[in-house]
Amino acid sequence: MNDIFITLIFVWTVIFLGLLAIGGFFMFRKFLKRMPKEDGRSELDWQDYYIHKALPLWHDDSKSLLNELVTPVPELFRDVAKERIAGRISKIALDEGAEKIQLDHIMRGYIIATPKRDHGFMKKKLTQLGIDYTPYNEYFKYADDEKNKFSIFDHSELIAKEIQK
């Protein structure tokens, strides 16, 4: 009886510490994104800025497409993914002086804001929706990956430099 009780306490301790470590990892990542950069704003501050500035450019069709594109993301993380992608799409549209968010803006922002490890799911979803992503293949190299951690809002300058070449 004593051995069973000690075993249960040990198992509960391991599970509790594991869950605590997982939660701490995600909280720490969010904390790092809230840290101000050289310009005094964090990644999330810039994301919110672009979304709010471009809000009049978003119409029902572009909002519904964005909602459909993030459906493969688990529901727990879907809002975060949608905000990240919407921030990138908004920046692209604002940089180009667009009057409305178009499919072209959505595709480029969606590809760049989606981490490379999720591109398989993204391509599958685009194929299901009947959207041809081959004209946007060049943008896949600008997507965020685990090796090159940089702001998704720095891509405009990288793309402009490569287009000029």
Rank of each mutant, 00 (worst) to 15 (best):
V73H: 07
G109I: 00
E162F: 11
L32S: 07
K125H: 07
W46G: 06
G23S: 12
D3A: 10
V11C: 05
I111W: 06
K141T: 02
K116T: 14
I6V: 12
G130W: 01
E138M: 12
Q102E: 13
E83C: 01
E68T: 15
K141N: 01
T71V: 14
D104P: 09
A143M: 07
G109P: 03
S42G: 08
A54Q: 08
Q102R: 13
L17P: 06
D118T: 05
G97K: 12
N148H: 15
D132F: 00
L129W: 03
E96P: 06
E75D: 11
K116S: 14
G97P: 06
N137W: 07
E99M: 13
L55V: 02
T7K: 12
P36G: 08
K53C: 03
G109C: 00
F25P: 08
I111N: 04
A21T: 14
V73L: 06
Y49W: 00
P36N: 06
D3P: 00
F77Y: 14
N67W: 10
I85L: 09
E138P: 00
L8N: 13
P135R: 08
D144T: 06
I85S: 00
D95R: 13
K123S: 09
Q164C: 01
K63I: 10
A143W: 04
K82L: 06
E75F: 12
Y110T: 11
E96N: 13
K63L: 15
F150H: 15
Y139Q: 04
K123F: 04
E68C: 08
D104W: 13
F140H: 03
G97I: 08
H105N: 12
G87R: 07
K147V: 05
L94F: 01
Q102I: 02
V80K: 14
L103R: 06
L69K: 09
F28D: 02
L129I: 01
Y139P: 09
P115Q: 09
P56F: 03
F140N: 03
L129A: 05
P135D: 00
I89P: 02
H155I: 05
L44T: 14
D118G: 00
K82E: 02
K161E: 07
K161A: 09
T134H: 06
A54N: 06
P115Y: 08
D61G: 03
F31H: 15
L126T: 04
I22Y: 05
D60I: 13
A98Y: 05
I51K: 11
T13G: 01
K147F: 07
E157H: 14
S90P: 04
Q128G: 02
E38N: 08
L57S: 07
K63R: 13
D3Y: 08
S151F: 03
L129D: 11
T7G: 03
K30L: 08
L158Y: 13
S42P: 07
V70I: 15
K82G: 01
W12I: 10
Y133F: 11
D95N: 15
D48Q: 10
W58Q: 00
G18V: 10
E83W: 02
F25L: 12
L55H: 03
K123T: 08
I152W: 11
K125W: 00
K63Q: 01
